[in-house]
Design a protein around this nucleic acid. Structure first.
Lengths: 156, 156
DNA sequence: CGAAACTGTATCTAACACTATTACGATTGG
DNA sequence: CCAATCGTAATAGTGTTAGATACAGTTTCG
């Protein structure tokens, strides 16, 4: 799979949980929806669980559901849970003391990257899981589908 | 070094060139400022050159200088030149036709990531190379330094 | 009770990306 | 001619990620 698809997969999973609000969904079911391995999903769910975004239940008929209302969870919450921090990093090389540019660079870069992070955060916090779930409902309705009705919502 | 430090190094290099406006700076000199290998710098400069941001001159006393005025180059130009596109990617797995969420996910994610990219772009295009060069001048002045004056501006 | 279906980890592997380094041909100035 | 440079190729080492198998602990249900 693509490298660094964690955020995309996390949004997919969280949206599926929001769409199936209240139900306990298993990692194999989510894995089929994402088309990946259940363990990959469980690893991701571990991060989301430790961030307080989902609750898990063990045992048969176990699975995962959102820990909070989908209206109160934004993509920024998901992003923070699964991506450590900035997608860009500062090299941690020591500065070259003989060079004026090198000596001033670190704080300069830090402020640039911090501003970029703020921009990303502001963008992501505009979208809530409830928005995405609603869009899926709309897209599904507009598609000329349900003859069999009551399709398994995620898969299986 | 840190993975994905290309953007940070590119900003460092371009700022150094803006600070030494008009002069031809060699890749070994830039490499000392960044504390990395000259070839790493030359590879990066290749991307910046193909993007029309710098000009190179071969031969002894060769090197690189900005191709345009530092006032007309923003960090977005630098970003576009060295980072392909979005820091996040969509997995290219086929969707699960039996799942409503999976079927609607790709366009949804695409629009979310596109909006994030726009936010990053708007943030980066606010800063011009001339801004950074000026900040280095200010930082260097405020430091209680020049007794020896006329320090080699980059290094060596 | 016992089988079945989960979660949560640990571990291993293969693929991939990135940095660093060495090497070499071509170019240019002194 | 010689030295310093660019541009590029080839290679090695490192780190990250997804995928996959395995297994202990938990819970439901017949």
């Amino acid at each position: 799979m693509a490298p660094n698809s964690r955020f995309a997969v996390a949004v997919h999973v969280m949206t599926a949980l929001a769409y199936n609000r209240g139900e306990w969904i298993s990692s194999p079911a989510l894995a089929e929806s994402v088309r990946t391995n259940p363990v990959v999903i469980r690893r991701l769910l571990g991060q989301l669980r430790r961030a307080g975004l989902v609750r898990a239940r063990t045992g048969m008929a176990g699975g995962v559901r959102l820990a909070r209302r989908p209206e109160s969870i934004t993509l920024l919450d998901v992003f923070r849970a699964v991506e450590g921090g900035s997608p860009f990093v500062l090299p941690d090389k020591p500065e070259n003391k003989a060079c004026e540019v090198s000596c001033s660079m670190k704080p300069l870069l830090a402020s640039v990257l911090a501003e970029t992070d703020r921009a990303i955060s502001r963008s992501l916090e505009k979208t809530r899981l409830s928005d995405l779930a609603r869009e899926i409902t709309a897209a599904t309705k507009s598609a000329h589908v349900p003859k069999t009705a009551a399709v398994s919502k995620t898969a299986r």
